[in-house]
Structure formats: C-alpha cells, structure tokens
C-alpha cells in the first residue's frame, strides 16, 4: 500500500511526528560531528544546526533545518522555521566549507521560513535571497537532501546545490497544500486535492527535473527503520561526492549555475502588431 500513496498521504508521512530529523541522520551518518553556533551578527537561531563532521573519515561541513521532538524543543527551534539568523548561520558555515575545501551537506526539512515579527526584523527575505545567490557560486561541492518537508522559500534558503536528493516520502512545494486550498477553493479542508495539484511528491520533483535522485524509504516510511534510511542516505551522499569530486571547481560552479539557469517551462509566440500597439 505504501507504493501508491496519494500526495496528501505523502504530506502526512513527511510531517509524521516520529520522522527522523536532521540531527538524527547526522548522528547516524557521520563518524563525528561538532555543533557550531551563531550567525556572527545577531543570534543563534536553533531552527538551523550545523558544523564540521567526518564522513567515513572525510571532513565535510553539515548544515540542516531542525524541527523539535517534544514541545519544549519545538519551541526552542521554532518548529524548524528559521529566521534571518538561521539562514545566515547556514551561510557562515557554507563559507567555512568553501574556505577549507570541504564539501557541504545540507539537510532540508522545514514547513516554511518564519514570517513573524522577529523574522521580518532580522531580514529573513534578504537572508534567503543571499543564500541562494551565494550557494550558487560557492566553490565547493554542495549536496542538498530534502528529508521531510521542503517548504517553499524556507527550503530554498538551504537547498541550492550541485545535486538535490529527496527521500521517497518527503515533499517539496511552493506553498503548503492548506494555503493553496485556501486560495483556490477558500477551504483548507481541500488540502488533499491541493496536494495533488501542486505535484509536491518526490516522484513529481524528479519528473520535473528539480531533484536528481529519489531515495527509497523503508516500508511505511523512514521512521519505521531510521538506521536503514540513514545507511541509504550515507551511500548516496558518498556516491554523489565521489562524482562531484572528479570535477574541477570551475566546472562544478558552471554546472551548478546551468542547473538552475535551465529551470522553467514556457512557450513562445511573437507579439502580434495589433497586440503591441493596442495593449488594452
């Protein structure tokens, strides 16, 4: 039955309370990991985690969006919804990776970036924009893995990379299905239909050319067998890093730019003379 889940069922699995979060995978995948803190400007946003780690002895830098497991941790981490300082912490660690030639591994898992007063005060929009621009030209390999929710701009602030992987039951969307349903049908109850319309599943994302690899999950979802899931993610990261490691940094950055530059679907039709002269 898990082979043919509806998009809405995928959303529910992606948001499952027992689903492994970034730090769960970090602990299982890397030999060692040291958490670093702060954006060096304003604050330490705990919706984002990161620091140096070793992948089978190889030094890498890890960043991730971290939801909380219990209520207190959720509040501390703002439910994984980062504000300006969270994205700036990620950028600061990305720069660390670049400076010392370490690959950057990003775990993406957020329902959305925060949009509250503190988020606006700390320039969450600027921080997301800056990260996309800077990640696009970062001179070190970047692998992003959508492990749960790839929520809109909040995800994009940490999801620009050479390869984007996605777990089978993760979702990646421009808007939460509830929000889409409210706009389309003025009814949040129609979120399941909106989930279908938004094509937010891993399979759809791969079909649209947005992610390179979809990693199959244990039967019933990653939370049924976290260590098997972690082992599979580790294998994929290792394989992708090996592939990226064969490229020169110039080629890597050029290919990354091209990866995003080609995204988009449109048609062309010359403006007719009449339309050009009489726009109304």
């Amino acid at each position: 039955m898990f082979a043919n889940l509806s998009p809405w069922e995928e959303v529910l699995i992606a948001r499952h309370k027992d689903r492994p979060y970034a730090l769960d995978y970090v602990r299982m995948i890397f030999d060692q990991y040291m958490e670093l803190s702060g954006d060096r400007v304003w604050a330490n946003d705990e919706a984002v985690i990161g620091g140096p780690a070793f992948l089978d002895g190889r030094p890498v830098v890890v960043i991730g969006q971290q939801k909380g497991r219990d209520l207190r941790e959720r509040q501390r981490r703002n439910f994984g919804c980062a504000r300006g300082p969270g994205f700036r912490k990620a950028l600061r660690l990305a720069r660390l990776a670049e400076r010392f030639g370490r690959p950057l591994i990003s775990f993406v898992d957020t329902s959305a970036a925060a949009a509250d007063l503190r988020a606006e005060e700390t320039g969450v929009s600027e921080a997301i924009a800056r990260n996309m621009a800077e990640f696009a030209f970062l001179r070190t390999p970047i692998v992003a893995i959508v492990i749960g929710e790839g929520g809109s701009g909040g995800a994009m602030g940490m999801a620009v990379g050479d390869r984007v992987l996605m777990l089978e039951h993760a979702v990646f969307s421009v808007i939460p299905p509830e929000g889409c349903a409210a706009i389309l049908w003025r009814d949040k109850e129609q979120a399941p239909q909106a989930a279908t319309a938004l094509k937010l599943t891993a399979k759809s994302a791969q079909h649209l050319g947005i992610v390179e690899h979809v990693l199959p999950e244990p039967l019933g979802g990653a939370h049924r067998d976290p260590s098997a899931m972690a082992a599979s993610i580790k294998l994929s990261i290792t394989a992708v890093l090996e592939e990226l490691g064969r490229m020169s940094l110039d080629d890597l950055v050029a290919a990354r730019y091209a990866r995003y530059r080609r995204m988009g679907v449109w048609r062309t039709e010359p403006p007719s003379e009449r339309a050009a002269e009489k726009p109304s």
Partner: peptide, 20 residues
C-alpha cells in the same frame, strides 16, 4: 502557485543570475 516547484526554482534562478 500554479507552476509549483518550477516557480519555486525561479527564486534560485533569478538570485543566481543577479549574483552572476
């Protein structure tokens, strides 16, 4: 919204183009 993930990726595309 109607272009879903394809629209979301325009954020990265335009930001990268601005940086370039």
């Amino acid at each position: 919204m109607q272009e879903g993930l394809v629209a979301l990726m325009q954020m990265a595309k335009t930001s990268a183009a601005a940086k370039r």
